[in-house]
Design a protein around this nucleic acid. Structure first.
Lengths: 236, 236
DNA sequence: TTGTGAGATCTGATATACCAGATTTCAGAT
DNA sequence: ATCTGAAATCTGGTATATCAGATCTCACAA
């Protein structure tokens, strides 16, 4: 952080735009703000100011406004016309995002169990095998990566593009927290067992079971996350 | 439509901005475009031009851009940076939107069955009773209105705000099509029976049954819609 | 005929100025 | 001390000009 004076409060919570990366400034702003909100760097109901954000990120208000509109549609901020923009994220929002993901992932698992084909079955089995190995090795980053691949493969087998995109928007744990979660051997074991059960159900075309097991997996791992980040429990 | 020349093609598919209503132009543009897309007034993959839309709607490109960003997050358009904006809606998208709604509504029904309170039970029973009467009377508009109230009451009982908002974004039948659907006595009967079953399951705190019945209801009525609008069937 | 590339052109991306509600401030009246 | 309302101010909303990547055109060379 090489700032000249750092007068503006809160300027340290979001990184200043820097480079030539990212196709558009809007995407960068969106991604930056989303991460900041989901990792709790804004208080619930905190007001944010478009001009101020623009200055902090070193861009004009146009990409800020567009990014805020995206975040608004995602449900992470609320705009009160001519009054202000509020952050909309807290523990119960996180819980509901997990429930949304559980509902959508289980629907996808249901369809994947009905639609999966030979080649995709093989791929899924390979992924689970690799997960088994990674679980033994205990390399968190490998597990995180395989986890994504696993769910992605199920999305592919389901042939649902719209639903897949919706699920992406419910994803909010970042790498550092995943690493904490996966550093626990018990958690690793649980996750492996669940992934194996999901894969088995899908491969055997048991759509009802796939749906159920997937839902339970997403909810349980979501609770693990909530317990770490928000230090509280919730029953479904 | 009081246009001076009407040279631009496609200008008749979207109504020109008119009034002093709606708090912001952005909201009006968003609502207008969303309705136009969902009612099939754009071909799948059709390109739309920001400047052209601005001219057709009689506004500048700023509210157009913001509305397009919202639609993009909703999954109804796709923006290729510096290349164009494409419409993303067709029969399979509609199917998946129905599946998404089914997944989310069933999750909500599940929670509503666990969380509903006395007063809300009474309200739900009243609504179902009114639905029974409206079904006999056969007034489509009353049924449409009660339908909304019914689902809304379940959302309230579930105490899920985020999920409720997500479901709103999956809603895409407009009034005219609903009216067509509800004009069929058989459909009215089916819908009433399903609504009654959903209410009964929620009231008796049978969350698993509520979930199942709600999902089947959303999927079945969605298929009815698809059969009318896209003239095709789909198995789940 | 085919290939090539400079320039015209199309389109979204970005910056900026200004507009208009909403809120706050504060002098002045009661 | 309290109320009132006009003016200053804050904030998002909107319009517009300009930037820059992506494509298309088409003369011109191989």
């Amino acid at each position: 952080m090489q700032k000249e004076a750092s007068k503006e409060p809160g300027a340290d919570r979001i990184e200043k735009i820097d480079p030539r990366f990212l196709s558009t400034l809007r995407d960068h702003v969106h991604k930056t703000l989303r991460t900041a909100i989901l990792s709790g760097r804004f208080a619930p109901d905190e007001r944010v100011n478009e001009r101020q954000l623009a200055e902090q990120l070193g861009v004009s208000t146009t990409p800020i406004k567009e990014a805020l509109r995206q975040l608004e549609t995602e449900g992470l901020v609320e705009t009160l016309p001519r009054r202000g923009v509020l952050i909309r994220f807290n523990a119960s929002w996180a819980e509901e995002m997990i429930l949304a993901r559980a509902a959508l992932e289980s629907m996808i698992a249901h369809l994947a169990a009905k639609r999966i084909e030979r080649q995709e079955i093989q791929r899924l089995e390979e992924i689970v095998a690799m997960m088994g190995k990674a679980t033994e090795d205990g390399v968190a980053d490998d597990l995180i990566s395989l986890n994504e691949t696993f769910h992605e493969q199920i999305h592919i087998a389901s042939r649902c593009q719209y639903l897949s995109r919706m699920i992406e928007r419910q994803q909010f744990y970042d790498g550092s927290i995943r690493r904490v979660i996966h550093s626990d051997p018990l958690e690793r074991g649980r996750a492996l067992a669940e992934h194996a059960a999901i894969a088995a159900a899908i491969i055997s075309n048991d759509s009802d079971k796939a749906e159920r097991v997937m839902r339970d997996h997403v909810v349980r791992s979501g609770e693990t996350y909530l317990n770490i980040v928000f230090k509280k429990k919730e029953d479904i």
